[in-house]
């Protein structure tokens, strides 16, 4: 599974990286970069940030 950012929706609020530094870092302009696959262990965290994103810009995909 992987996290996907919709770059059109994302407004660089940065909550996702703050909540899940093990999955995401911010680039120098404040936009999230996905660092790794979502493992089973990281799934709850990934789901948490998907729910927390104020722009609904994050989703989890099975591929």
């Amino acid at each position: 599974m992987r996290l996907v950012v919709n770059p059109i929706a994302c407004d660089a609020f940065g909550y996702c990286a703050e909540l899940a530094p093990e999955l995401i870092h911010l680039d120098e302009w404040g936009y999230p970069v996905i660092d790794r696959e979502v493992t089973r262990g990281l799934l709850p965290l990934a789901e948490e940030i998907v729910a927390a994103c104020p722009r609904r810009a994050l989703s989890i995909r099975n591929d």
Binding site: P7, I8, C10, A12, D27, W29, G30, Y31
Partner: peptide, 8 residues
């Protein structure tokens, strides 16, 4: 539309 493109 997208930050990484607009700034990158």
């Amino acid at each position: 539309q997208c930050g990484p493109c607009v700034y990158g």
